[in-house]
Amino acid sequence: MRFGTASKFALSATLALLAFFLPWQASLVLFLCVVILEIFSDTYKPISAPAHKAFLRFLAYLVSLGLFMVFINGLLIEGDDDACIILGLSFYPDGLAFGLNVACRLMLLSSAILLFFVSTPIKIFADLLGYFGLPQKIISIILLTTFYLEQLPARIRQIFWSQEARGAPIKGNFILRIRSFFSILSPLVLSSLVESVNRGMALELRGFRGQVPPSRPRDVRDFRLAYLILSTSFVLLLWQVWK
């Protein structure tokens, strides 16, 4: 079975929310589930091979960050219980437990959110936000942002090269580097302001009033499932809080 974008979003949001309420053991299990979903499920299939690689790199980073958090909190937070000595360092059980809690929460939360985005192009996400009622103007800004995100690195590279060719220093002391940064930023911002004026006019000349119809029609079944998942998790969370 393959979930639609809305139910996929609901599932990821639920997992991210659960991270704040579950004990670390459960969070860790769910974190592993996220990894399995990313690798094996059709629903969360990454949009591209680089996206998949980036996700795996991020997981490795998350795990090392998690271990670091356990280590630091184990060292720094003293509790009532006696410390255990490992490799000559004193680790406190309360600190370790706190570190594990925070680390597993962060790991589940981050991986669940990224699980959605690694398998959903931003344009489809923009469609989804539109279905959920976000104003059309905001959707069009998201789409324009993705457009600029595609264009900016090349523009920055171009300015960077021309500044380098003119001898602008990219090494040297802080002030020199800030100056160099300014010499890259200045043409970038100026050209973008000019372009904003022209693009704003061009959009108006094409009758654009801020409305962006979604690129595909809304899948009613997918939305029913999404609302079901979201309302179930909401009820479960309320119950957990009340308990």
């Binding site: 103007k137 069009s140 800004i141 998201i142 789409l143 324009l144 942002t145 457009f147 600029y148 995100l149 900016l152 970038l188 911002v189 973008s192 302001l193 372009e195 904003s196 004026v197 693009r199 704003g200 006019m201 959009l203 108006e204 801020g210």
Partner: peptide
Amino acid sequence: GPSLPLIGFSVAL
């Protein structure tokens, strides 16, 4: 008008 694309550029920046 021009503010709409400018916001998109600023987010990308």
